[in-house]
């Protein structure tokens, strides 16, 4: 799942404990069983709960959990493609030896993380600025929102092709414009630093408007009395933003960032279409690397090791962040 689009909402829906809290109060789930009509009711409801959840869990289990386990097995195997499927030849640790010896892997990991941190930071700053502007806008706010929904709703592959055309080395409008400015013809996608930058620009263009919309909604929802108090104190707009607005948005933003970073481990569509991971391996994300090792080099075992390592990193980060999700949300509730 490549996209960035569901992050902020997902982020905010995180706190498992909060929603659960009030029904836990009345829940007899953990109480020792004793007979009584109320308790029978509880048990019946619990059973219904599992019945209602079962179809979803079966589907999710079969299609996600089982493959995750299977991938783990493959990552310890020598595998090749046979006429009727895959052929597991023997078990081995070599795949991980190869993985940890591979500079490409560390580069892809570093690239994925760095790329994400930078784009998320820029998107957040620009998105917040845009939201502040939109909030003060007296006319045309609705139209502007509609316009900003378009990049978000665009298929990533499509926007990647569009940017590929803009950056084209012989007739791209960006190439032409840069040539006009610098006097020499740039190879935007042909050299590492320009290629990475160009990819970030494409990403920022697509995601910033969405961040702006989310932050704007946060701004509108903030309690007005705090601002009025600030205005009475004579704080200017800038000060108000730093001292009043930002702290209140912090919880939402923090959780959104964490989610966005987790999702970015799947970064694939944009580099695959725009640069193919190149030049060299300059824009090769973990997912692009995994895909290439698997289906281009047909190196199934090591490919499964890349895939499994990526999955473990995400799971680990997720569990690690779970604490801060709770902490952030807790603070939000207090304030």
């Amino acid at each position: 799942m490549s996209s960035t689009e569901k992050a902020p909402t997902a982020a905010a829906t995180v706190p498992p404990q909060r929603g659960g809290a009030h029904d836990k109060g009345r829940g007899g789930a953990r109480r020792p069983a004793f007979s009584g009509p109320r308790d029978a009711m509880e048990r019946r409801m619990a059973r219904i709960g599992w019945l209602f959840t079962a179809p979803s869990l079966v589907v999710i289990g079969l299609i996600t959990i089982f493959p995750i386990m299977y991938s783990l097995v493959l990552s310890f195997s020598r595998v090749r493609i046979g006429y009727d499927g895959f052929v597991v030849e023997s078990m081995t640790f070599d795949n991980y030896v190869a993985l940890f010896a591979s500079q490409d892997f560390y580069y892809a990991l570093g690239f994925t993380v760095l790329y994400t941190v930078i784009t998320v930071a820029v998107e957040l700053v620009l998105g917040t600025l845009a939201a502040l502007v939109m909030e003060r806008l007296t006319t045309g706010r609705g139209w502007m929102m509609a316009l900003m929904l378009i990049p978000w709703s665009m298929i990533t592959v499509v926007s990647a092709q569009l940017w590929g055309y803009i950056y084209n080395s012989s007739f791209g409008v960006a190439t032409w414009a840069l040539e006009g400015i610098t006097g020499s013809t740039p190879l935007i996608l042909g050299e590492p630093v320009p290629a990475i930058t160009a990819m970030m620009v494409a990403d920022i263009w697509k995601t910033t408007p969405f961040v702006a919309i989310i932050v704007l909604a946060g701004l509108v929802m903030l309690p007005q009395d705090v601002y009025e108090a600030a205005e009475v104190d004579g704080a200017n707009a800038w000060k108000t933003f730093w001292q009043v607005t930002l702290p209140q948005l912090r919880a939402t933003i923090a959780v959104a960032i964490l989610f966005r970073i987790l999702q970015a481990f799947g970064l694939f569509d944009l580099p695959f279409v725009l640069t193919g991971g190149g030049p060299g391996t300059a824009t090769q994300s973990l997912a692009v690397m995994g895909y290439k090792v698997l289906f281009q080099d047909l190196n199934i075992g090591p490919g499964a090791a890349v895939a499994t390592a990526t999955g473990l990193l995400v799971t680990g980060a997720c569990l690690l962040f779970l604490r801060s999700f709770k902490a952030q949300v807790g603070r939000e509730e207090v304030s």
Binding site: W50, L51, T53, A54, L57, V58, G61, L62, I65, F66, M69
Partner: peptide
Amino acid sequence: LSRRALLGGGAAL
């Protein structure tokens, strides 16, 4: 229920 289903389905696959 779900554990059985998971295991059963998984084994089949």
